[in-house]
């Protein structure tokens, strides 16, 4: 005879063998992996966009239109001096001829440029601080000294980059939502199947006076558990894949996007795991209460 003081361990009320938990966790894991990968891509793309935008907004290029060679050096010196006076918080340097010629190569190819080709002199401005440039004031100051110059603060590129970044973010977000909807659909289907499979148990629970909310909670906790493990597996796999790609990008010059990982991504992955779990639990709650209510009306 058993020791009367021995209390048997508590057992789950729903039969764990009847709902293909492993297979469902695996499917949810794959879904969560894709969603977490989209999330990491979105975060990384956002970081990349900001970094590029920051580089663009903190720099500008001045094109000096110098017609005669005689005044060339003095005009350059004069322009540099004016710019340095007007922008003491910036690094202002003339771009060497070979560097400015190199900028034309993508358009002209590997041809020798003739020396008398009237190319503008380029001056690069790199601001040390987040400082907004007054392009018109700089152009006016240069013009007052007889220098014809054109300033480009890269806003055209920056705006284009911002639009592209927004599009990439929107697409990644849409993919993430689509995948989360797939997770909700799977959980709804699984809860449906589980309620059918555990019908006898529900009948006994109803017989001993269990409220619908009590029965629904059993399915919610089951779905939340599956969702949590699926999300955890998916998030870890996505993290490993992201690390693998980043290392590969660093060690080999392969055609991969210049993505990165940051510590904050870990926080977002935790939020993702919690959110994914919550979505699964919510889907199970809605499905279970709806079915129990329908069953009750049928009775």
């Amino acid at each position: 005879m058993d020791n009367p003081s021995h209390i048997p361990p508590i057992q789950p009320l729903l039969n764990p063998r009847q709902d293909n938990t492993r297979a469902l966790v695996l499917v949810l894991g794959v879904i969560a992996f894709l969603a977490a990968l989209s999330l990491l891509f979105m975060l990384s793309a956002e970081r990349l966009k900001r970094s590029w935008q920051s580089q663009l907004t903190q720099s500008a290029t001045v094109q000096l239109m110098i017609e005669t060679d005689a005044a060339r050096e003095s005009k350059i010196e004069s322009a540099l001096s004016i710019l340095r006076t007007k922008l003491p918080e910036a690094q202002i340097i003339q771009i060497e001829k070979q560097d400015s010629d190199a900028l034309l190569k993508p358009w002209l190819g590997n041809v020798e440029l003739p020396d008398d080709l009237p190319l503008p002199v380029l001056i690069s401005i790199d601001l040390y601080k987040d400082y907004s440039l007054d392009i018109q004031a700089l152009e006016d100051a240069l013009r007052a000294d007889g220098i014809i110059a054109q300033l480009d603060d890269h806003s055209r590129w920056s705006n284009q980059l911002s639009r592209t970044g927004q599009s990439v973010k929107a697409i990644a977000m849409a993919v993430l939502l689509l995948i989360l909807f797939a997770a909700i659909a799977i959980t709804t289907f699984a809860t449906h199947a589980s309620l059918a499979a555990q019908r006898d148990i529900i009948r006994v629970l109803v017989q001993v006076g269990a409220q619908d909310s009590f029965i629904a909670r059993l399915f919610v906790s089951q779905a939340a558990q599956r969702g949590f493990y699926g999300a955890l597996i998916g998030a870890l796999c996505a993290l490993l894949v992201a690390i693998f790609f980043i290392l590969r990008r660093r060690t080999e010059d392969v055609l991969l996007p210049d993505l990165s990982l940051a510590w904050i991504d870990g926080f977002w992955l935790l939020v993702f795991v919690a959110g994914f779990t919550l979505f699964c639990a919510l889907a199970a709650y809605i499905t279970a209460t709806r079915i129990l209510r329908t069953e009750r009306r049928r009775r």
């Binding site: 048997p8 039969n15 006076g209 409220q211």
Partner: peptide, 27 residues
């Protein structure tokens, strides 16, 4: 429904088919 279930709490039922839950111990 809630009142019905609360009422069921006050009723003990023994059925011919027992309706024991298979994956739970007797306890």
């Amino acid at each position: 429904r809630q009142e019905q279930q609360s009422t069921k709490h006050r009723i003990g039922v023994v059925l011919q088919d027992f309706r024991l839950i298979d994956h739970l111990s007797v306890f």
